[in-house]
Design a protein around this nucleic acid. Structure first.
Lengths: 136, 136
DNA sequence: CGTTTATATGCATAATAGCGCATGTGAGCT
DNA sequence: AGCTCACATGCGCTATTATGCATATAAACG
C-alpha cells in the first residue's frame, strides 16, 4: 500500500498509539516488557508491533530469545511531526501515563541491562501472566 | 470511538489526506470544487468529508445550495503537529501537487468570490463531469 | 534431545471500511 | 408547484482489519 498512508494508518489504533508512545518514552524495550506494560495478550502486542514495523515506525533487534523494539532512527520530517503529535497527546491520555508507570516499574527489574533476566515472578504466575486465562 | 484515535484514523486514507492537504493549502473551498480537484465521484468526496468533519478536522459553512469546507480553527497542539506532517508530505506526493494545480485552475473561475457561479462547462459535460459514466 | 521460554503467525470469525449505485434532502429558479 | 442543482446518505457488496485460539519457530537450558 501507499507507504505514507500506511504510516498514518498505523497510528490509527489505540494499542499502536500506546506502543509508539511507550517506545518513544522509554527507548529500547523488549516484547515481554511491552506485554506487561500494556496488559494485553502477547500475540496481540506482537501483531501490532509487526504492523508498526512494516509501516516503518520501528526497528527490532534480536538478542537471544528476546526481541527489543525501538522507534526507527532514520526518520523524515513528517515522521518527527507525527511523533510530536503523539507526544502532545500524552497530556490527555491516562492510558499512556499508566503504560509508562507500569513500564517504568518493570524496567527497574532489569538485571545487567537485559530484560527478563532473573525474573521469576512479577505478578503471580510469572511475567507472562498476561496470557489469557492466567490474567484478567 | 476514542476521539484522538479517530483523529489519526481519519488521516489514514489517501483520499482524506488529499482533502486535508487541499483544504490547508487553499482555505475555504466548496464540495464541487473538491470534486473537480480530486477527480473523484461526488458521493465519494462527500463521504470522506463527513468522516473528516466528524473526526473534528473540518468546519462546514452552508451558503445557498453550496457547502464550503475548511480546516477547523480551534485546534490543539497535536492537531497542528499532524497538519504539519501532512504539509511535509507534500514534497513527496505528486497527487497532492496535481490536486493543488487543478484546484487553483478551478478557483480562478470563481465569480464574486462565490464558487460555481457562471460555470457552464469546465470540462465537457459541465463541472459535475466527474459523475461515473460521464468521466473516466 | 526434550523442555521451557520468548516471540511470531496461520486460521477462523467478527467487526469495520470503502465503493458504486441509487435515492433523499433542501435550496434556488422558473 | 415542478424542476434543477449541490450535496448527503441508505443499501448491498467486497475488502480489510482486529481478535482469540492454537500452534510454529527458535533460542536457551537441563
Amino acid at each position: 500500500m501507499d507507504a505514507q498512508v500506511e504510516l498514518f494508518q498505523a497510528l490509527g489504533d489505540a494499542t499502536r498509539l500506546r506502543l509508539v508512545n511507550l517506545l518513544t518514552q522509554t527507548g529500547e524495550i523488549c516484547v515481554c516488557e511491552l506485554v506487561d506494560a500494556l496488559e494485553l495478550p502477547q500475540y496481540n502486542v506482537s501483531r501490532h508491533l509487526q504492523i508498526l514495523l512494516k509501516a516503518g515506525w520501528l526497528e527490532d533487534r534480536k538478542v537471544g530469545k528476546w526481541v527489543y523494539y525501538r522507534v526507527a532512527r532514520d526518520l523524515k520530517p513528517y515522521h518527527r511531526s507525527l511523533l510530536r503529535a503523539v507526544d502532545q497527546l500524552r497530556e490527555e491520555r491516562e492510558d499512556f501515563r499508566r503504560d509508562e508507570q507500569r513500564a517504568s516499574r518493570r524496567l527497574k527489574l532489569r538485571r545487567g541491562g537485559v530484560c527478563c533476566v532473573g525474573l521469576v515472578s512479577i505478578s503471580e504466575g510469572g511475567h507472562t501472566a498476561q496470557r489469557p486465562g492466567t490474567a484478567g
